[in-house]
Each structure stands twice: as structure tokens, then as C-alpha cells.
Design a protein around this nucleic acid. Sequence first.
DNA 1: GTTAGCACTCTTTTTAGTTGAGTGCTAACA
DNA 2: TGTTAGCACTCAACTAAAAAGAGTGCTAAC
Lengths: 351, 351
Amino acid sequence: MAAELDGRKKKILQAVIRNYLETGEPVGSRTISKYTDLNLSSATIRNEMSDLEELGYIIQPHTSAGRIPTDQAYRLYVDSMMEEKDREIGELKEMLLEAENKVDKVLKNVAKVLANNTNYATVVSAPQIRGNKLKFLQLSRVDENQILAVIVVEGNVIRNEMISVDEPLTDEMLLKLNILLNTHLTGLSIDEINLGMITALKEQAGIHSDLISTVLDAVAEAIRGEEDLEIYTSGANNFFKYPELADNEKASELIGTFEEKKALAKLATENLADEQNTGIQVYIGEESPIKAMKDCSVVTATYELEEGMRGSIAIIGPKRMDYEKVVASLKTMKDELERIYNRRKEADPDG
Amino acid sequence: MAAELDGRKKKILQAVIRNYLETGEPVGSRTISKYTDLNLSSATIRNEMSDLEELGYIIQPHTSAGRIPTDQAYRLYVDSMMEEKDREIGELKEMLLEAENKVDKVLKNVAKVLANNTNYATVVSAPQIRGNKLKFLQLSRVDENQILAVIVVEGNVIRNEMISVDEPLTDEMLLKLNILLNTHLTGLSIDEINLGMITALKEQAGIHSDLISTVLDAVAEAIRGEEDLEIYTSGANNFFKYPELADNEKASELIGTFEEKKALAKLATENLADEQNTGIQVYIGEESPIKAMKDCSVVTATYELEEGMRGSIAIIGPKRMDYEKVVASLKTMKDELERIYNRRKEADPDG
DNA sequence: GTTAGCACTCTTTTTAGTTGAGTGCTAACA
DNA sequence: TGTTAGCACTCAACTAAAAAGAGTGCTAAC
């Protein structure tokens, strides 16, 4: 199986795929005979198609139907037959700028714009920070028995924790705790905060050791970024545009999965785990990290806003998706996101 | 139209509605004849049904079909024919407790649990604060040219704003600004922060008046709570369980709307606007505040966690939804939410 | 190696016929 | 006067059969 294809077979297979991407209908020999510039009769095409079927690139849904591409054919197409598409997607960029300087809004927008533009469903994950350190920590009294802990982690991830205390803390105590925590914790990563240190901190805090516990938990969560990976989705109803996904059972499953952000997080983590990967990844059918998407193709891109702050963008559609367009759109978005960030960081420091 | 119904007509109408709620199929005279304890023949029922049709309570989808209730009938049913259902929904409560002390997680859970329990779609809006005041404001230096503004509004809504500054602020300056802002702004509502005060503040801040602007904007947004109303949804795929909503066109529209949190926010604002309303609201068909839900019924409840902190829970399903159960579930959830809050506030101050 | 032609297959569409649920109306009955 | 049995009628839903259409595989000729 999967032997090398000669030039003509390649051309024919490509034509079959292209045509099927457009129409979603099985494509017959006569169509190809006209579609390509090979000037071959349908009979010849039939012979070739017969070969392609034997090689596992196309199948017939039933005896007297045309052929449709197999996952193997899509794989070949994506890997080596796809042409770089012009990225004319100027409007994508414009729509991004609206959202000014709020990362979460920009990402929400990315999801929406991509979904509108491609007619597929999109999943965008907020940048996740790994192996980073505590940058800033402060306890403040908000009222008599409420203390606000503000935690900032490298990458400017901010976390707030409101802590109730039975007995009001004096100003001195608060100051003391602040100094204590900062001198011991600032600049440390999660691995460097060990049990011995925690015990020491608690001892020094005396009757307020509970407070320390709560703060430390919050610090740990903030550093790990475990809280919950923010996921933005858009275009779930685009599934309905493709009959092969739109029947009740499949649509229901897809929509259900799409609602379950936790399941979608897999898409992000899958890609982000591979720190090298900064490119585009294509999952066809069963290759998908999410079972519910076995009838779909999933294309993901990884973006990097800053050292270590990486997130992912995914587009989910039918297997017969317009891979060229999707890949081009993803590249545009990825570049644009990274550009926006760089612009802000390098040229526009007072954002 | 809508004249008073005599007892028998009422009973028959109720039977028609009940039966239709269960089956979703038009119900015929013979069914009713057996369903009720009126001991009437189908012929008699037919006469009565004919009357009910003339009065606008039921219609025939086509000549030789049974009758289905109209919106008017549902209205009557919900207003006066519905029975209080026992609230046996103990598991709802248990599932809530998992989520400990994070309001957002609790609310996410509410949405999920309700959706699972009722088999309808749910929308939960986070509590919105109105007319509240600035409680706490603090600027801190995070690194040389980044200032973190932490803003706490009554009701413990916390907002962070990272502000870049060209020239590093000295410690004195920072202290001065903090005092300046706190003395002027703490305890004020949005209406009380007027232009004169802003100008005065900026003057006193000197070269850092830009900083003041940014902080004030953030304060204003925090107080208004305008940012974006958090909306949690669940059970979108439940729509597929009801054939009358599951055809591609309708499902697509519903799912699309369901994804558009902004549209859903209407549900919340609609109810919260009426400050008196702390009960259950039922929208049938066209009555719904959201056009896309014209074929659905929407039942909403308003919960109040604390003085002025009110949010809403909505359940969306087919018009033939199990109103008794939905109302009971909503009541349980509302009570439980309010109870959890009270427990925390009154009995467990260091939770 | 390529192509025209034809028989064959199998889905899709069309048509016609049948069934069944349910109604409205009439006439009889209590 | 209200109730009921009976019957003709309607119309969606189902079934079966027929026709159409798209496409193939194979063979024979070029």
C-alpha cells in the first residue's frame, strides 16, 4: 500500500480530492476527465482510479458511485500536494485591532473572526505559562477582616484571592507578613518552594499561619496556571453547513464536545507539550486527539506571545476542509498575534 | 377570545397539554376520553375540543390530526393550571458542594447540573452589581516600569490593571498617588466621581496624570461592572433531544445564539432590570426576549447573593417543556445558591 | 496505451396505492 | 338538552413498485 504514485496518478488523485473538497459528493471518472488538463477519456481515468482504489487512496461508497478520498489521500494531500495559498486575508487583521489591549478580548475575536472567515469551528486557547516564577506578591487589608492577596507571575498573570480573617491584623503584622513572603518567595518557581520553607514561613507568621497556607495555595495555583486554561470557541453552528456532520447524532456529539472546554483543552495541551512545535499541525479523522472529532479534520497552530507564553488556535471542520485556506488563515492569525504582541512590547511600551 | 372556561373544558385542555408535554405528538379525542376521569366519549370530547380550538387554545397541525396546545394554552397552564411539584432534587445540591468557594466554579456547576438534570439548555449569569462603590484601590510597582492597579468594589469584585509607565515612579510618588486616590475616591459611586474631581486629581498627579486617567477608566469599568457580564452555558446539545427543535435550521440558529454570550446576556439584564423581581419568570414562544428562541420556552429565576448582587439562571427548552420540574429545579437552585452564600457569610467567616 | 460502447449495479426519485389516526357531522337516545 | 354511536371524509405516513440517473467494469477495437 501507499507505493509511489506516478505523475498522472497524482494528478488524478489531486483532482478527485479537490473536487470532493468542493462538492462533498463522490466524484466520477467523467468529471475528472473534464476537470483535469490531461485530455484523457473517462475510460482511461476509470482504469487509473481503479488502481488508486487498490492503493488505498480512494473508495467507493457503493458499487455504482464515484470515488471519495480516504484519510490516506488527505494525508498525502496535506503533506505534499497542497499549494501555498495567497494570504489575502486582510480583513482578519483589521478586525483584530478593535480589541485594543485586552488579551482575552483579542483571543475571543480571533476565534470569532476565524470562524466567520473560514466557515469552520474554532478553538483558541489563552497562552499558558510554564515553569515560571513569582514576580510580585502583596497582601492588603480591604476591610476589618478581609485581606486581599494579589499575586503576579512572570508573564503578568495576575491572581487575586480574598481571604477572610477572624481577628483583624494590625498594620505592623501585615507589613511584616508582606516582607516575610516577598523576601522568601519572590523570584521562585514552584519547584523551589519546598516544604521546609513553608514550615518556616508558617512558624514566623505565628497565629496567622492559616493565612500563609491560603496564600501559598493561591501562589501555587497561579504559578502552575492550572486554574483553568481559558478556552474561547466560536462557530459551533458551522458544523451544520456540512451535511456529513450535520445529522442529529453527529452534530449533537460535536456540539456537546465543543461545550466541554475541558475536552477541548486537550487540543491545546497536545500541541503545547511539544515545545519545539511552532508550526501548523493537521489531524485527519481518527488522528484527532479528541475522539468526538473522528469525522473531522483538526488543524492547529501554536503561537508564542513571549518567552514561554504559548497558546494554540485550532480550526475544526469536515475532513474535506479547504486545507489551503485554513492553513493560510492560521498562519496569518499566528503571525498577527505575534506581531501585535511585539509591536506592543517593542514599539509601544505605554500601550 | 380567551373567555372563561368551564370546569370541564379546563380539565380537557389540561389533559391535552399534559399529554402533549409528554409525547410531543398531537393528541386526539379518543386519547383524552381515556386519559381523563370525566367518563366522556370521544365524540363529546371532540365537541369540546372544537370549542377549545375556536377559543384559541388548541390547533390542528392539519385536518386529520389531533390537537396541539397554542402559546395561549401554555400561558394559561403556567399561570393557573400548573401544580407545585415536589422538589426531590437532592442530587442537585450535592453536586454544588464540590466547587468549594469559587463563585465562578459554583455557577458553572449550576449550569451543568441543571442541564443534566432537566435535559434542557441552561444559561447562568454571574451576579451583577449595581450602584456600588469603590471599596479599595491600590497601586503597586511590579517592576521598573510596570504599575499594577488593584481595584476592589463593594461586593468584592476585583479588577486588575497593569499599567506601563515610561519613567519609573519613585516610592514616594507611588505612596503619594495611593493616598491621593484613596482619600478622594474610596467610598464613592460612579455618579459621585465627577469631572472636577478628575481634573483636580490629575493636576495633583503632575507628570503622572496619564496614569490617573488609566486608573480612573479602570475604576469606572469596575464599578459599572460593564466589562462583560460573565455567562455560563451548558446543555446546548439537549436541543437535539426534541425533534421540534432538532432540524438543522433551527438547531443551527439556537446553537449559534447560544454561543453568542452577548445575546444571552439579554436574558439576565431583562430580569435584573426589574429590581423587585426575585421570582420565576416564564417566557413562552414569541414572548422570549431573544428572537432565536421563538420556538422555545425560557424560564428564568433571579438569585441574590448579597445586597445588590443579583444574577439569573435560565432554562431553555421546547415549548412543551416540563414546567413543573423546571420551576422546581430553578427554585431549588436559587435557594441553594442563596443558602450557600448565607452559610458562608454568617456561619463560616473564614471559609 | 487509449478509447468507445454496453451491460450491469445500486442509489435516488417518482408514482401510486394503502393504512390509520382523527375529525366533523348527523341521527338517535336518555 | 347534553351525550353518544356511527359513518364518511381528510390527510400524513408508510409501503411497494417503477423509472431515472450516475457511474462502474469489461471487452473489443483503434
